[in-house]
Nucleic acid binder design. Structure first.
Lengths: 205, 205
DNA sequence: TTGTCATGAAAACAAATGTACTCTAATACA
DNA sequence: TGTATTAGAGTACATTTGTTTTCATGACAA
């Protein structure tokens, strides 16, 4: 959470600002002054008006005068970041082109029931999935629809969950690591529960 | 953008719904019925109420009765996804624990002036950055503050941009690949412009 | 035609709400 | 101590706004 600490706001203004942000995140619309009044445990709208005025002067919020619940938080609304070009990670060096499009990360997040798993270990290292990475997974409804070569998270009851390449051959399931140090696991379809298939990898440095 | 086409809404409802979504995205608050009336080129609020009622019945929107501008779009609001536990990507298999916290990807996006670059080539493959990955970078203000071992995007004027490990030794800059097939590049500090340092890696499957 | 239904116009009403004003209590400061 | 400043209570008021009701129009089926 973004706690506003290092700014030029008084405690009262800060408390109100944080509450407003939280309210607007939850409800997708602005609170009314009287709601803020109650939330701040006040019994008159005047102090709220004063604090809002200060927040507005300092550039934190804005609203349409006279209109009900028209507050906006003046803040960078980010759904993506600009893609500034491509970089060479090889021998030949490519040019750095400016501002083509936007990288939208949230599209993956908007898929239904997406969940994340943190990766332990290095068995997927050859697929460039390292220890500590977060993998974003989409639930698998139908185990029969999984394509060979998909990376899945699978639970073998009694053992636990693992991230592996999925292969199916002659009625048998093979879960293969992307690391030659590990042997493939061979299973029957009814011995394993597939939780999700890999959508994306996220690594924060 | 999400254009609502394949749903059970009439054209009029669809047009209103799309307009509402667009308005709320721009203004961070709900429009009033009279605003919708004007936007839909109507001269009475009644048709809007009717359409809103239908949108609500079909589960697209909700609002607080009698309260001004309290509409919400019933939609998955996602800033993060639940982290469902950890998966083994190694020999030992770990347990799959339920619902601990949320993975917030947007925190990185909120840093100032973050930009993305798409990666070409495999020179960073040993750092688990593969061809086609998107790297999120934070601008470097001060080249002197870069720590050894940081992954940076650097532009060598006349040549182009490359993603490499940064090392500084005895006044010289070394840009090293994470791939033994590539030789380190040795440069003077004034021969190179550093654009950003690595914040995160994003790979969409 | 006739009745029904849906859509929209028009008007009216009451509640919600922003705003302004006065007054009091607390606080800071000289 | 006395005075200025500020925060907050209390109140009042006009506008905004959701809601209801009535009426007109047109489409459509019986």
């Amino acid at each position: 959470m973004t706690t506003s600490a290092d700014n030029n706001l008084t405690d009262a203004q800060n408390e109100l600002y944080d509450w407003i942000k939280s309210y607007m995140k939850d409800f997708q619309h602005s609170p009314s002054i009287r709601q803020m009044m109650e939330a701040m445990r006040l019994k008159s709208p005047a102090p709220i008006q004063s604090r809002l005025k200060h927040l507005q002067e300092k550039g934190y919020i804005s609203w349409q005068e006279g209109k009900a619940r028209t507050m906006q938080i003046v803040d960078e609304i980010i759904e993506g970041v600009p893609i500034m070009g491509s970089v060479a990670a090889g021998g030949l060096i490519e040019t750095y082109s400016d501002l083509q499009e936007n990288l939208d990360i949230t599209d993956v997040l908007k898929k239904k029931d997406v969940f994340a798993l943190s990766v332990n270990g290095d068995s997927m290292i050859d697929a460039c999935i390292a220890d500590g990475d977060m993998v974003l997974m989409e639930p698998i409804k139908d185990a029969y629809s999984i394509r060979n070569g998909t990376i899945v998270s699978a639970m073998v009851p009694g053992l636990g969950t693992t991230l592996k390449y999925f292969f199916k051959k002659e009625g048998k399931i093979f879960l293969e690591a992307a690391n030659t140090a590990y042997e493939p696991i061979e299973l029957n379809l009814d011995e394993v529960v597939f939780q999700g298939k890999l959508l994306a990898v996220w690594r924060k440095i």
